[in-house]
Nucleic acid binder design. Structure first.
Length: 795
RNA sequence: GCUGGAGUGGCGGAAUGGUAUACGCGCACGACUCAAAAUCGUGUCUCGCAAGGGUUGAGGGUUCGAGUCCCUCCUCCAGCACCA
């Protein structure tokens, strides 16, 4: 490829100058300017920047730079989410120090990030594994602990035998470990949890007013999975009470049996009354052996065991009904027990057929049972004829039910039996009770005398130093917590730290939070929609409630981007050999070209995946080559009046950047270039073009700006303004339709009257021939666009 | 199954209800060259010699006019999935 300019020299020159002049630092908040906090999820220091990082950071930089040119005070920070498993795995595999591995990677990736030439504020860099940072992660944990929002729970956890660690539900994918793919086992373990479920309602309800794309809100709502219903008590023949959760109280008359999860606590309690105890215990044991994935596999035949000798009383009909245990009922959801309404629930129907239970239709409707629609009640005693919706409330009240909601969301387990993470700042007294490490001992340092090779024992348990530190400070018999935190904990508040990254007294001063938060636009990957995004929203709310944060929601706007696929249309992977190395592309074609190509692939801010196209990127380089030569087309006498085109371009490029449609913004620049290469352009118009180009090609535009004789940076220029009066060309092309079909176009002065347009249309040869003396019954004129002649009989 | 979203050239993709296929890639031909690359120019939805006709997953509808709005269906993508 011919090179009319040396991109490597230009990039080096300007990156150095920008660094030296701190041009992109946000600085102290200037209240006279509008602020914009633009955030992109910070990277994990894996060792190498991939093309996805370029897509994530370089493309939003266009948006950032335009905001700067509009005079806004922009904060566009960057950092590293640097605790986590890969460092530890590298340590195990290659006998490296996880810390060294991590910090080497950070140093290298920082250089790579610099090669983008983004308008990053490097002075606010945040690194989560730095003690100055994790000290505050610990502080936040302790605040939550003191308010009982963090607690030591015992529960069934997902255990990855290969990583030797507990996984959150969110980290289990199809029954396998998200990171290593091993099959996950269930284990009973004590673990630290955060009470995110306490915030479930607010996490759903506060989404409503946010201007986020609806689909992202829906993903969050689905994940939280709120079901609104009621708890209903069924008296048992033994005198005990069985509480079930249902969303369909209106079908209570149709509840012909009850089902409990096999591990439901009532089962053991009822032991002496259950006549077939042997059979029940056998079923329980079989269920316990299967993990949840197996139990909940779709299409699996439903099995269960009737609790002989026990009946429940339907609280509204008074009918005595049988009670079963069955593994299609999940202990963790609702109350772990249901009232079965086989006529109106598929699962209950299948179970009833198999175990010969009665099926009573209680909602009118067409078609075969089971039917789950709402409607008019039938076979429902005094409620027969009532509408479902109204019946819910009335029947709930009648049987002393409690209206309540239940959620799919579980409390957030943050315990990890791993080394490379934030030590949980808890110590246990000789009786085994947990206590907060006092604030003066923060950061509660991660010990360094640890062999990270997995033995099944948490690595921190092997640290002599940690043990001694604990006894020295707290006394003999005291022991340290040996778990570390889920790294999502580190990333749940990092955006707050960017507002005040050097603060040694607070995680971020309230005054700084107030100045910058909430984040105005948050760009990120779809994979973080339900985990990180939910966790950080929870954290924002919890810290607000504790009086430490000033905003109720962390992000005003959120956009999910897609993936850059390999040239073959598949996800890039080493094994497929379809990985595009950004460094190679940058050295060959330049940072501006790579950035513009990525921006040109398609609209940003929708999670669409785009394949990499070698030819496509060459096209962007060609465009920049022609831009480099554009000054040879400068003339004092442009042959064509292209003011209108210039102003249209300014408007379109600006609007499109704002809408994250960088692809069409670039195409508008191309259209302009194509036109002025032919017609020539004035010096002023050339400068205007360079200013429009600046966000897209920061290096080349800066170089050309300097060559054009300017002493100050193009990135200190303002975004060009368009003149609405110059937007419209003096001539317009109007489509002439006959009976709705376009038959000809005519070119006229703009804002011609309907009469003038009609007159011109009728003079058009094609139109005259087609009308062929047919009578025009009606004329619809859309000013400056189209005229439609309704003339039955015309061709 | 449920919840979202999307179907437009050979490809990525454009189109406030008003000239469908902008822009780029690819391809073809031409210029330059001993030649090639690069570059520049011209062409490039489809049927038709032409005049003209057809075309936005399929079918219907609303409208003077539909890629765009409504209904039915098909396909693909994403998330959730025995969640009571």
């Amino acid at each position: 490829m011919a090179t009319r300019f040396d991109h490597q020299a230009i990039e080096k020159k300007w990156q150095e100058r920008w660094n030296a002049s701190h041009i992109y630092e946000a600085g102290e908040r200037d209240q006279l300017k509008e602020k914009q906090f633009i955030l992109t999820e910070f990277p994990y220091p894996s060792g190498n920047l991939h093309i996805g990082h370029w897509y994530a950071f370089a493309v939003p930089d266009i948006y950032v730079r335009k905001l700067r040119m509009e005079g806004k005070q922009v904060l566009y920070p960057v950092g590293f989410d640097s605790f986590g498993l890969p460092a530890e795995n590298a340590a195990i595999k290659r006998k490296l120090d996880p810390k060294e591995w991590t910090y080497d990677n950070i140093a290298y990736m920082t250089k790579q990030l610099e090669s983008m030439g983004n308008a990053f504020d490097w002075s606010r860099m945040v690194v989560t594994s730095n003690p100055e940072y994790y000290r505050w992660t610990q502080w936040i944990f302790l605040e939550l602990f003191k308010k009982d929002l963090a607690y030591r729970g015992v529960g069934t956890v997902n255990w990855c035998p290969s990583c030797n660690t507990v996984l959150a539900n969110e980290q289990v994918v199809d029954g396998t470990c998200e990171r290593c793919g091993s099959e996950v086992e269930l284990r009973e373990m004590p673990e630290w949890k955060l009470r995110i479920t306490q915030y479930a309602d607010r996490l759903i309800d506060d989404l409503a007013p946010l201007p986020w794309p609806e689909f992202i809100k829906d993903l969050q709502r689905n994940w939280i999975g709120r079901s609104v219903g009621a708890e209903i008590d069924f008296p048992l023949s033994t005198g005990d009470t069985l509480t079930v959760f249902t969303t369909r109280v209106d079908t209570l008359y149709g509840a012909t049996f009850c089902v409990l999860a096999p591990e439901h606590s009532l089962v053991t309690k009822l032991r002496s009354s259950i006549l077939n105890w042997e059979e029940v215990i056998r079923y329980q044991n079989a269920a316990a052996k299967k993990d949840e994935i197996e139990r909940t596999a779709e299409g699996k035949e439903k099995t269960g065991v009737r609790l002989e000798g026990i009946t429940a009383k339907n609280p509204v009909s008074g009918e005595d009904i049988p009670v079963f245990i069955a593994d299609y009922i999940l202990a963790r959801y609702g109350t772990g027990a249901i009232m079965a309404v086989p006529a109106h629930d598929e699962r209950d129907f299948a179970f009833a057929e198999k175990y010969d239970c009665s099926i009573r239709e209680v909602i009118e409707g067409e078609g075969q049972l089971p039917r789950s629609t709402a409607g008019r009640l039938t076979n429902s005693g005094e409620y027969t004829g009532m509408d479902s919706q109204a019946a819910k409330d009335v029947i709930t009240a009648k049987v002393n039910g409690r209206k309540t909601s239940t959620y799919k969301l579980r409390d957030w387990s943050i315990s990890r039996q791993r080394y490379w993470g934030v030590p949980i700042p808890i110590v246990y007294d000789p009786d085994g009770l947990p206590h907060a490490v006092p604030y003066e001992h923060l950061p509660w340092h991660l010990p360094t005398d640890v062999d990270v090779t997995p033995t099944g024992e948490p690595p921190l348990a092997k640290s002599q130093e940690l043990k001694e530190r604990t006894e020295r400070i707290f006394g003999k018999g005291w022991t340290p917590e040996v778990e570390t935190m889920d790294t999502f904990m580190c990333s749940s508040w990092y955006f707050m730290r960017y507002t005040d990254p050097q603060n040694t007294e607070r995680f971020a001063a309230q005054s700084e939070q107030e100045k910058w938060l909430p984040v105005d636009v948050y760009f990120g990957g779809s994979e973080h929609t339900t985990m990180h995004l939910l966790y950080s929203r929870f954290m924002q709310k919890a810290l607000f409630d504790l009086g430490h944060a000033t905003a109720l929601e962390p992000y005003t706007l959120r956009y999910n981007r897609g993936l850059v696929l390999g040239p073959d249309g598949n996800k890039m992977s080493k094994s497929k050999g379809n990985v595009i190395d950004p460094d190679e592309q940058v050295s060959r074609l330049g940072a501006d070209t790579v950035k513009m190509y990525l921006a040109f692939m398609g609209p940003y801010g929708t999670p669409t995946n785009y394949p990499w196209d070698m030819g496509g990127i060459a096209g962007l380089r060609r465009f920049l080559e022609r831009v480099y030569d554009l000054r040879t087309h400068i003339t004092t006498t442009p042959t064509l009046d292209n003011k209108a085109l210039l102003h249209q371009t300014i408007k379109k490029v600006g609007d499109d950047i704002h809408a994250l449609k960088f692809n069409t913004a670039i195409s508008a620049l191309m259209v302009y270039l194509n036109a002025v290469e032919k017609s020539g352009l004035s010096t002023d118009d050339y400068h205007c073009f360079l200013r429009m180009l600046a966000p897209f090609a920061p290096h080349l535009s800066e170089e050309l700006w300097e060559q054009a004789g300017h002493e100050s940076s193009v990135h200190r220029e303002s975004w060009p303004k368009f003149d609405p009066n110059l937007l419209i060309s003096s001539e317009v092309t109007i489509a002439v339709q006959i009976n709705g079909k376009v038959r000809a176009t005519i070119t006229l002065e703009r804002d011609a009257t309907e009469e003038m347009v009609l007159d011109a249309a009728q003079q058009d040869e094609v139109i005259r021939r087609r009308l062929n003396s047919a009578q025009i019954l009606k004329v619809i004129y859309v000013p400056n666009r189209a005229i439609n002649l309704i003339a039955p009989g015309a061709t």
